[in-house]
Write a protein that binds this DNA or RNA. Structure first.
Lengths: 202, 202
DNA sequence: CGTTCGTTTGAGAAACCTCAAGGTCTGTGG
DNA sequence: CCACAGACCTTGAGGTTTCTCAAACGAACG
């Protein structure tokens, strides 16, 4: 959908399915920057920049509406509030990346996993998918490894440990929260960076 | 200047000096998200969100001009291109955070350090400070540790090793590149995410 | 019925951390 | 001028986390 280094890319709004954005390193390693779920903007940075600085990939079959760069810029002239709204969306995106940065920089593997699953759950809940008991998740352990800066082997051990501790069970594409608040306590998860109730439109 | 959790914060444009934005964890650990140098926007996210999701701190004596949220939003109505420019600035900001994320997730301590110093050098050069031989830098090893997700002790060892390898010398507030291209090769540094030559204004 | 993809487990190694102790430099008050 | 405090840097020793390599297992699929 979006390829790092290519020019004149489009942005999309994801209507159905999951995708992820990532950066690939020269040695073949990759870092997943964010996961997109229905309702999310996809590739906004790649239209503002001449060349895309990241890649995107579908994780499931997806439905998305293309958003042309020209349409966005034109709309700013007609509806300034829309500019504020788009800026807000970009900022919320950045806030999530920042939280992921904190995750990688200052939390242990288990805290990272707990935090990641809780963020996903919260975001999915906002668009009406899943609940506090769990959610369906198409990510493999390899995806989790690339997102959390871990090896796939270690991801497996971390998941086993969280399961044995009675906190969360991630098997066969389903995340089941066995102790939601235990997970929150473990990870130090705080929804402030997600719970913004929309752009300030005066 | 900006405090996580507080409301109705202002944004600034840094005219002189250095600052950094960071997030503090419950256990006292902190993660530096980004360093701001002259010319950088500071706290844009904290005016779009009702409450600031991060804190900022001055690293030197600084001079900055306050930018009122209302002024920004009002200007969108009068000059739609300004909206595009601000959105572009926010996106460049995000691109840097993304690159830091890759740094923490997929690079070794030495590559992180090399990448970080090269990014700083490149950004400083863009505003006319420092050159390929080095630059003055007010960051302590504690700051580097908080930025790179390492312990201060390990930062010290990494710096020593890079110095012994003849790559870079960071002492007494000055970074001296002993082998600029060796550092670039080590870190896999690529300026694409910084070199955007300004917003696309048609 | 073999292949592929994802998961699971073990064993040993590497990277990084914590604790602890000194060292250097700078500013400050006596 | 000297003693002292505080901030920062440096080094050692030992411990923990996470990685790599290797092997095997199960489910899905042609």
């Amino acid at each position: 959908m979006i390829h790092e280094g290519e020019r004149n890319q489009s942005a999309f709004i994801l209507a159905e399915g999951w995708a992820c954005s990532f950066k690939q390193l020269a040695d073949g390693e990759r870092q997943i920057v964010d996961v997109q779920i229905p309702g999310d903007f996809l590739g906004l940075r790649s239209i503002l920049f001449r060349t895309a600085d990241h890649s995107s990939e579908a994780l499931t079959r997806i439905e998305a509406s293309e958003v042309l760069a020209a349409d966005i810029f034109d709309s700013f002239a007609e509806a300034p509030r829309l500019a504020t709204a788009v800026l807000w969306a970009a900022s919320r995106d950045e806030a999530m990346v920042v939280e992921h940065l904190v995750n990688l920089g200052r939390r242990s593997a288990e805290m990272r996993m707990a935090h990641f699953l809780l963020e996903l759950s919260t975001r999915l809940h906002l668009v009406g998918i899943g609940d506090r008991t769990g959610f369906d998740c198409p990510l493999t352990q390899f995806h989790l490894a690339d997102a959390l800066g871990l090896s796939a082997v270690h991801v497996n051990r971390v998941l086993r440990h969280l399961r044995e501790e009675g906190l969360v069970t991630f098997q066969k594409g389903h995340v089941a929260f066995d102790d939601f608040f235990g997970l929150v306590a473990l990870s130090g998860f705080n929804t402030d960076y997600l719970d913004q109730d929309g752009p300030l439109l005066r």
